[in-house]
């Protein structure tokens, strides 16, 4: 099975600010300023605020992130959706049914620390990861992915994270593990939407293990170089860019490795509309609307939807021989 993934162009380690230097940056800058002052070089104050070099995230305690640059497989020259749109528009029904609800309510309600993710099921080394462990499990990379919602809108998001396979390898799935299930937090105190009887909570989604291990499948921890905003599924989520957005589970508290295919929340709610695979596919319409086109946020004209959301060359082989109209 040839994986047509270009290897990331290595960012030289020298370009990445070490965490130690990063956490001490203010002292270092201050020391530099004092030194310059002592030398009698009266620099204007703003000169001390040097622009952040590539690979440095803003001072939020979030680790440094290797930026996606041209040549990297995670780079895309498509216009990125502004952060204001990414954080003010989306479906996160734990916070309400309006697209603006998550942005309004999640930041004030969701407590992302302490946070743990229990990994269990068909694994040799079941383990509960604290969020800080996950931030250090593998180097954080920026990955610019298209996100296509099943409703027909899309955006381009510079996520931060690493391949989920890094975590999978740590827990060593047994030979029986064929599927993986993700579970979102369902705490009514933090998520008023889970009081709604109209959907089963907690929100669960699943992938086949080979899909979960695919390098494109991201364990998302940030976007735009910073920690994930609450409304985008803080502190840790999954991003599967070739599937409709609802497959990309937010605010994960549990990951289970299973022998049998799990039933996703939306599949249970409307089996004829939301299948297990839910690969982006312009040839298979939603029962109520066409999937041939999509509206990219910020654009007026619809644009054609691409098979596997434009990632067909990398993932189509996962589905060789399958009838994707049946396995929608």
């Amino acid at each position: 099975m040839p994986l047509l993934i270009r290897r990331p162009s290595d960012i030289r380690p020298s370009e990445i600010t070490s965490p130690e230097h990063f956490s001490r940056r203010r002292e270092l800058i201050a020391a530099l300023g004092l030194g310059l002052g002592a030398a009698g070089l009266a620099l204007p104050r703003h000169a001390l605020a040097a622009p952040a070099p590539a690979g440095v995230s803003p001072p939020t305690g979030f680790p440094p992130v290797a930026r996606a640059a041209p040549g990297s497989p995670w780079f895309s020259d498509e216009a990125q959706t502004p952060k204001s749109a990414i954080t003010s528009y989306g479906n996160f029904y734990e916070y309400g049914v309006d697209k603006a609800d998550p942005g309004k309510y999640a930041p004030g309600l969701l407590k992302t620390r302490p946070w743990t993710v229990a990994v269990e099921g068909e694994v040799l080394k079941p383990r509960t990861f604290a969020i800080d462990d996950l931030l250090k499990l593998a180097p954080l990379e920026e990955r610019i992915y298209r996100l296509r919602c099943v409703e027909g809108w899309s955006m381009v998001v510079p996520w931060v994270g690493y391949s989920l396979s890094a975590l999978i390898n740590k827990v060593e799935p047994t030979g029986n593990a064929k599927f993986i299930e993700f579970v979102t937090l369902a705490d009514p105190a933090q998520m008023p939407g889970v009081r709604s009887p109209l959907l089963d909570w907690p929100y669960v989604e699943g992938l086949r293990l080979d899909e979960a291990r695919h390098p494109l499948t991201l364990l998302g921890l940030g976007l735009y170089g910073e920690a994930l905003p609450a409304q985008n599924g803080a502190p840790v989520r999954i991003v599967v860019p070739w599937k409709y957005g609802f497959k990309s589970v937010k605010s994960i508290v549990k990951i289970r490795f299973l022998r049998e295919q799990p039933t996703s929340t939306w599949t249970r709610a409307a089996p004829s509309e939301y299948g297990f695979y839910s690969n982006v596919n312009p040839a298979v319409d939603h029962p109520r609307w066409s999937q041939k086109t999509e509206r990219r946020l910020g654009e007026w004209r619809r644009r054609p939807t691409l098979p596997f959301n434009g990632y067909a060359d990398q993932v189509a082989s996962l589905y060789a021989g399958m009838d994707l109209k049946k396995n929608f």
Partner: peptide, 20 residues
């Protein structure tokens, strides 16, 4: 605004999708 007067998309919706 939504269909952009795209005849193909419009006919598609108005012939295939009971909701529309």
């Amino acid at each position: 605004l939504d269909m952009g007067f795209d005849g193909e998309l419009i006919v598609d919706d108005l012939t295939k999708r009971p909701f529309a």
